[in-house]
Simulated scan of single mutants.
Amino acid sequence: MRDTPISRHLKKIAATPVDAGQPVGAATRMQARAQDLMRAKLATDQQRLKATKSIARKIEIKREVLPDYAAYVAEVLAQDAGTQDDVLLTLMVWLIDVGSIDAALAIAQYAIRHGLAMPAPFERSLAEVIAESIAETPDVPAGLLARAIELTDGHDMVDQVRAKLYKAYGLAIAADSPATAADALRRALALNDKIGVKRDIARIEASISVSGKSGKDADT
């Protein structure tokens, strides 16, 4: 984390123990003060992003500023207060945007467990944002896609969004686990018949068939 006045202040907050004699909610109030500071910084960073037209440059800016929020995120997750936190949820999306899926999923797990809601201008639910954003990120490891599926399972969302996540997972594991991949792609197709996986399913099924025949030939 870069050494800035904000980072030093957050480290001081994070290092300050909550006295057992303090009234209940002292930790939450401390977190609220840190959140106010982060909200002001976030507004500044969002203005910078708004003034930038290039998507690639926007991602560079997010990657540049995200370390400034690291201590705050760590403290919120450690305190586990579960209060609505628009700053935290925005940072979750930014982490996905820069490809830090593991870090984003840590926030996502906290947010879903506490029933947090996505802030404006996001129109989709928390589960939908997690599923769609991760599904649309290139080259996400299969294990992280599986975590996203598990995390959002049982949460209501439009079928097209869940289909994207199953498609991404199926394609990610096609080489190593073709049977499971075919099942995931069939699930995606059942949710959205325009998801574009029919050829992938046919290709994987053909490879499974060839592998099965090769195995039988080897046994004879």
Rank of each mutant, 00 (worst) to 15 (best):
L88N: 06
M38P: 03
P119L: 04
T83F: 14
D85E: 06
L105Q: 14
L144T: 08
R2Y: 03
K167R: 15
R203D: 15
R147S: 08
E64Y: 05
L89H: 07
S207G: 05
L191Y: 07
K216P: 02
T180K: 11
A32I: 09
L165E: 11
I96Q: 10
N192R: 11
V18P: 02
A78D: 15
D36M: 12
H114Q: 15
D86H: 09
A184P: 02
A104P: 03
M38H: 03
L171E: 14
A181V: 03
M118N: 02
G21M: 06
T28H: 03
T28F: 03
K53I: 03
Y69W: 06
D153F: 11
P178Y: 00
R39F: 07
A78H: 15
G25N: 04
A127E: 03
Y69E: 04
A188C: 04
K58L: 07
P23D: 05
V24G: 00
A190Y: 05
A142V: 05
L89E: 05
L116E: 09
S211L: 09
G212N: 12
P23W: 07
R186T: 00
K50Y: 01
R63F: 01
A188H: 02
I101L: 08
M30R: 13
T4E: 02
E150F: 03
A202N: 13
Q22I: 00
V87M: 07
R8V: 07
G99W: 14
V18N: 03
D86S: 11
I173P: 01
E64V: 04
V18I: 12
T180D: 11
S214M: 13
A108Q: 02
E123K: 11
P119R: 02
P138E: 09
A182C: 00
R2G: 02
L10H: 10
Q46C: 00
N192A: 12
M38A: 05
I107S: 07
K41C: 10
I204H: 01
P23Q: 05
P17V: 02
G115A: 13
G143Y: 08
R2D: 06
G82F: 07
V210A: 12
A142N: 08
Y72Q: 09
P5I: 06
A127N: 02
V24T: 04
S209L: 12
T83S: 14
V76A: 12
L151K: 06
A163N: 11
P5Q: 03
N192Q: 09
R147K: 12
Q160D: 14
I208A: 11
V65A: 06
S133W: 04
S209Y: 08
R124Y: 10
D86V: 02
E123A: 10
I149Y: 00
K164Q: 15
L66S: 05
T4W: 03
T137K: 15
G143R: 10
D200E: 15
G143C: 04
L89N: 05
S177D: 10
R57S: 08
E205L: 09
A104M: 04
R29M: 08
A103Y: 13
Y166D: 14
L126V: 01
G143V: 11
Q35K: 14
A181L: 01
D153H: 13
A56C: 02
P178I: 00
G99N: 13
Y169W: 14
S209P: 00
I13N: 06
E150R: 10
A188W: 07
